[in-house]
Design a protein around this nucleic acid. Structure first.
Lengths: 246, 246
DNA sequence: CGCCCAGTTGAGACATCTCAAGGCGCGTGG
DNA sequence: CCACGCGCCTTGAGATGTCTCAACTGGGCG
């Protein structure tokens, strides 16, 4: 049962925090060949854009706004989320260096994009992107593939939110991080995210996330060297916590 | 806060249960112009397909299988879901007459498709669909649009599963049904789905769904004339149960 | 007419949330 | 370089919503 291989893999921040990354995103040897390929093709968009910056917690765009720009993230991390009238928040995805945001819709933004930490990005006028998509089939295919990947990620996320217990969610999440960064047992994962962001992504409260991290640590399955770092001690045992999902 | 207008709207069974519907799906006056339009364009695929039937609970295809066929549903209803090793199930979407399934991915099916009730469908060989997508830009656009709509639906679904209480989920769900069928207060909605399917869609147990229906009925917000029928008595009061979401 | 399945209802268990307090790491300023 | 303070994280205790297990009911189909 390995259908969620693509899962929310591309969801989390890379190691470098402030070092601006050049156009070829840092993810050297990223296991997802498709992603790399798409980004290569889509990097021909680069010349059309202008650099811009967002401070931590600043909003790139709001759900419902007319879609005027798309962005490629150069450094930092962005959360894509839905906000409700009474303040509840559901994070759909995290985007990091090399990823695009605002490419997937037409008309209006479906999600709000906020900077998890300071972000440098390239902004593209939507009209130009649309023209590229119309004119170049390779770019069209690239965008198409990204959207398909997003759909899959969202569907994988549905299982997490619909069927998993807190322990399973956190375990799956850590495994996603590890897979995404290509780390092995014993290597440090820089997760960049605070407990609240993780909670909003997993549909839990920050206290529950914290307790679950603590429990996994107590069992020796993971280590928590410092704030926003995790080390997987045993991928096998962590996987065992996910009840066949991950 | 009306961002979920697109939501899982296209998710549920139409009124006619067994009457096979001709190629122009029954949904006369469907509020979603885009959907209608897309289907019109995509109906030019019809000539490529062959009719097939599936009994209630039969599987159209399994997650992970190589994607060989796409289907257009003529009558009945299909659930698209993920199954876990230990028997948990999360339904991502329901598809009904006029909808396509298996169109959205390449490579392998990401979800399992099962017949909620007896289904008549048109099957298209994937190779032919791919050719059409490559050759005809209007079809390509149609498919593209459908996938974008699916993505939006999935993201809306994330909020339901991540943030809403049982009462809010059920209320949102009924409102989706009503909107989808275009019914007004006092009109009967044929939902076609059993409590278990609703539960698996909403990330609840069937008992909780049942209790919630009962409570809404007791309050006079809805009526439950018979099995698998609902009548919304007050859309306003029902909306009030959703905490700004729906 | 009666069986069978879907749905309802109840009672108790339990996971997660809520509210609250305490600790400590990290960045800042001295 | 070290001390300080703020915010993040952890931990605790109690409340509660949902699940679980179980019995019962009713409608529909054979």
């Amino acid at each position: 049962m390995s259908f969620s291989g693509q899962a929310v893999r591309k969801s989390l921040p890379p190691m470098q925090s402030q070092f601006p990354v050049a156009k070829a995103p840092a993810a050297g040897g990223h296991p997802n060949a498709v992603l790399g390929q798409e980004n290569d093709v889509l990097s021909s968009l680069d010349t059309l854009g202008s650099v811009c910056r967002f401070a931590r917690n600043e909003t790139l765009f709001d759900q419902g706004q007319d879609l005027q720009s798309s962005y490629k993230i150069v450094s930092g991390a962005v959360r894509l989320c839905r906000l409700t009238a009474d303040g509840r928040r559901q994070i759909a995805e995290f985007r990091v260096a090399g990823d695009f945001v605002g490419l997937e819709w037409d008309g209006q933004y479906a999600l709000t994009a906020e900077a998890v930490r300071d972000v440098v990005a390239i902004r593209y006028a939507r009209s130009r992107v649309d023209r590229m998509i119309a004119e170049r089939s390779d770019i069209r295919e690239g965008v198409f593939g990204l959207i398909r990947r997003d759909l899959r990620a969202a569907q994988d996320h549905l299982i997490t939110l619909g069927c998993q217990t807190a322990k399973e969610r956190v375990a799956s999440f850590i495994l996603q991080l590890a897979r995404r960064d290509g780390t092995r047992d014993g290597e440090t994962i820089e997760m960049q995210l605070g407990r609240q962001d993780i909670a909003d992504y997993l549909g839990l409260t920050l206290e529950t996330v914290s307790r679950t991290f603590t429990e996994l640590k107590r069992k020796g399955i993971i280590a928590l060297p410092k704030r926003r770092q995790v080390i997987v001690r045993s991928t096998a045992r962590l996987t065992a916590q996910t009840a066949g999902l991950n």
